[in-house]
Design a protein around this nucleic acid. Structure first.
Length: 596
RNA sequence: GGGGACGUAGUUCAGUUGGUUAGAACGCUGCCCUGUCACGGCAGAGGCCGCGGGUUCGAGUCCCGUCGUCCCCGCCA
């Protein structure tokens, strides 16, 4: 292999096969760097030594595929290249075969500047030849293997579940697959193997896992692709802590495979705490939490500032940002996405001038240094449009929630904007700082769906409520906590799971709370409800995004860097040019008519 | 569905207040070169300025539309 040759191989005959990475033609002396998956080795063609082979070498061009036979030779000291592992050796060519020529590629894998993403995706096979992509794909392989080995050793069976399955109206949009044999009927690709893995528990496979593709027809983001890979697992008779232990175990193995040693157990935080302290259910703990500064203001202050005294007031601190210029402040304002009636005070100096006592108190409460950036987010006292549906309680909570989450989004936007100044996102080499894991627990069971004017499952409708909250299912749905948990890394949700409902009576209550009639529940999940009646063990599990784990390990900003053949923001594969219309005959066979 | 950024040579980019023949680097082609490794030197080819309208004596530059890529909000149980 091209990356394997070392000085100790000196004198041996070697065969190298690979691509022409670079050619340096000095006339009577030609150097060719031959590249394969493992690296690059320099091959020397000397006219004096072998005119015929040298002549052949002068016809080589970038990305030709060649085979070279020659003698490995230790380089003389002043020609050693310290930048590459094979830099102490070179291959003196004795025979050269061009296995294939290449058209001039639109870009070169060895080039330092990247072409734009459109180009990279269209010619993905060339992009994937680049070192960085080869490394990412190898990393992905190693991580998968580590996780498989770990879970297998812990007694989990990897069991496959169908890709062509049943559409369920809950959750994300389904990708549909028409049935030819049953015209007018459709399979759906799984958003996750949720019900199958629960049925595997009912079937007696008490520890299941699968590294499996899932499909969701929703809009894309840098960290969201329409098809993605989950590490899905489920176990019988677990406490949440047992599931967390398993996850911590395989993540330790996965990170070890990538060369990082992480500490377990991960810290834990309730959902309420996460919202109050970070304005997010996936806190990025690499930066300080927000601070409740409601007490810093007098009632008179709040009136002057036109701030609603009954809503939260929080301070966001970003370390080491330094003083904001007028221009900075103008740029900061649009980063704030006003949710509900949340409003922003971005000019802390002005606050110090007009409300010196409050400002001093905020500084103290948030432990701010002089060089830290402070901004304050509060609720506007102007009467907003009040939606009366849904009862009093969720509305009050929603307004609090809006202020916290608006602040949380701003906190992240500021952190990204000033990443160079605070440096918290730079890899330090210390895994305790670079990888801030967190369990977020006690999620609410239900969320108020403003459009549908009903309660919806926050996680999914098979999640078990907290035992103590059972009696609130009817009286106070907003207060019901779920036995659901997320694992979060550096502000990215890696995975989500729960203890499931294993009793049919409770499952029925949940459907009822969700406003589903018995008939509706049966038509959607009849097979599952029936299965629950045949001796279902208590069970629970979780699913983690493999792509996201690898993305963070690779230090990438987008899933596209760790997926060999990803899709664009419009869910298009630019290489194969999918999706496409299909011909009339195909449609006819499926009994489908396309609206023009 | 909404907001923002970008689109100029094969690639990455520059292009002033609207003004004559649109530039650079890398890549490509040819020649020279025996220790280069992002080789070097000389010469050369290469452009529907994304596409379609408009304003103007004149548009890469201004306006409108459209297509594509990226980021964000909504959405993603």
């Amino acid at each position: 292999m091209c990356g394997a040759l070392r000085a100790s191989d000196s004198g041996k005959t070697a065969v190298l096969m690979g691509w022409v990475n670079r050619r340096r033609d000095l006339g009577n002396l030609i150097f060719v760097d031959v590249r394969d998956r493992t690296g690059v080795t320099q091959v020397v063609f000397n006219k004096e030594r072998d005119p015929a082979v040298h002549e052949k070498a002068s016809t080589l061009r970038n990305e030709y595929v060649i085979a070279v036979i020659g003698k490995a030779k230790q380089r003389v000291p002043d020609t050693i290249n310290k930048n590459i592992p094979t830099g102490e050796v070179e291959l003196i060519a004795e025979e050269l075969r061009t296995l294939n020529e290449s058209k001039q590629p639109p870009f070169l894998p060895g080039e330092t500047v990247l072409p734009n993403e459109e180009m990279r995706l269209k010619y993905r096979y060339i992009d994937l030849r680049r070192d960085a992509m080869q490394h990412n794909i190898e990393l992905r392989h190693k991580v998968s293997i580590a996780i498989r080995d770990y879970l297998s050793a812990q007694g989990f069976f990897e069991i496959e579940t169908p890709f062509m399955t049943r559409s369920t109206p809950e959750g994300a949009r389904d990708y549909l697959v028409p049935s030819r044999v049953q015209p007018g009927s459709f399979y759906a690709l799984p958003q996750s193997p949720q019900l199958f893995k629960q049925i595997l528990m009912i079937s007696g496979f008490d520890r299941y896992f699968q590294i499996v593709r899932c499909f969701r027809d929703e809009d894309l983001r840098a960290d969201r692709q329409p098809e993605f890979t989950q590490i899905d697992l489920e176990m019988s008779y677990p406490q949440p802590e047992r599931v967390w232990e398993v996850v911590e175990g395989f993540l330790t193995a996965a990170f070890k495979a990538a060369g990082h040693s992480i500490k377990t157990p991960f810290p834990r935080m309730s959902y309420d705490e996460a919202i109050r302290l970070y304005g997010s259910d996936k806190p990025d703990m690499r930066l300080p939490a927000m601070t409740d500064v409601r007490e810093a203001f007098t009632a008179a202050d709040l009136t002057t500032l036109a701030v609603n005294p009954s809503l939260p007031i929080v301070a966001i601190r970003i370390p080491q940002v330094g003083e904001l210029s007028r221009k900075d402040r103008d740029e900061v304002k649009p980063l704030f996405i006003a949710k509900g009636s949340a409003k922003l005070f971005e000019d802390f100096k002005r606050m110090e001038k007009n409300f010196p006592q409050a400002a001093a108190s905020i500084r103290e409460k948030s432990a701010a240094e002089a060089s830290d950036l402070l901004v304050v987010v509060a609720g506007d006292s102007k009467p907003g449009e009040h939606k009366s549906e849904g009862g009093v309680k969720p509305e009050v909570k929603q307004h609090d929630h809006a202020v916290y989450t608006a602040a949380g989004l701003l906190r992240i936007a500021l952190a990204q904007k000033y990443a160079d100044r605070h440096g918290a996102f730079k890899k330090s080499g210390d895994p305790d700082k670079d990888f801030r894991f967190l369990w977020v627990t006690d999620f609410p069971m239900f969320e108020w769906d403003e459009d549908g004017k009903r309660w919806a499952a926050a996680h999914h409708p098979f999640t078990s409520p907290h035992e103590h909250d059972m009696d609130k299912l009817e009286s106070d749905p907003a207060a019901v906590r779920a036995l659901a948990y997320d694992v979060v890394l550096n502000g990215t949700e890696l995975g989500s799971g729960s203890i499931r409902i294993h009793r049919q009576d409770i499952q029925r209550k949940i459907f009822h709370a969700l406003g589903m009639t018995e008939d509706e529940a049966h038509s959607r999940f009849g097979f599952f409800l029936e299965a629950l009646e045949y001796g279902t063990p208590p069970h629970g599990g979780i699913a983690l995004g493999l792509d996201r784990i690898v993305m963070i390990l690779a230090g990438a900003d987008s899933l596209r860097e760790v997926i060999p053949f990803p899709k664009t923001a419009r869910a298009v594969d630019l290489m194969v040019d999918a999706p496409t219309p299909v011909n009339e005959a195909q449609l006819k066979e499926l009994g489908i008519q396309v609206k023009k």
